[in-house]
Simulated assay, not measured.
Amino acid sequence: MVNPHAGEVALVVNGERCLAKLTLGALARLEERLETGSLMALVERFEGGTFSASDVISLLYAGLAACGWEGSEADLAEAEVEGGPMMAARVAARMLAVAFVVPGDGNDAV
Rank of each mutant, 00 (worst) to 15 (best):
E31M: 03
E32F: 04
E32L: 12
E32S: 10
E32M: 05
R33G: 00
E35H: 11
E35Q: 14
T36E: 13
T36N: 03
G37E: 07
G37W: 09
G37I: 06
G37S: 12
S38W: 08
S38H: 09
S38Q: 07
S38V: 06
S38E: 06
S38C: 05
S38P: 03
L39I: 09
L39D: 10
M40Q: 15
M40F: 14
M40E: 13
M40S: 06
A41R: 12
A41I: 03
A41V: 15
L42N: 08
L42W: 04
L42M: 12
L42I: 01
V43F: 10
V43N: 13
R45T: 01
F46E: 05
F46Q: 11
F46V: 05
F46I: 10
E47N: 10
E47P: 00
E47T: 08
G48Y: 00
G48E: 14
G49I: 12
G49D: 11
G49W: 03
T50L: 13
T50M: 09
S52M: 11
A53V: 13
A53I: 07
A53L: 13
S54P: 00
S54T: 13
D55S: 04
D55E: 10
V56I: 15
V56R: 07
V56M: 06
I57T: 15
I57N: 09
S58Y: 05
S58P: 02
S58I: 02
S58L: 01
L59S: 03
L59W: 02
L60A: 10
Y61K: 03
Y61F: 15
A62I: 08
G63A: 06
G63K: 11
L64E: 02
L64A: 12
L64V: 05
L64R: 11
A65R: 15
A65P: 01
A66M: 07
A66Y: 08
A66W: 04
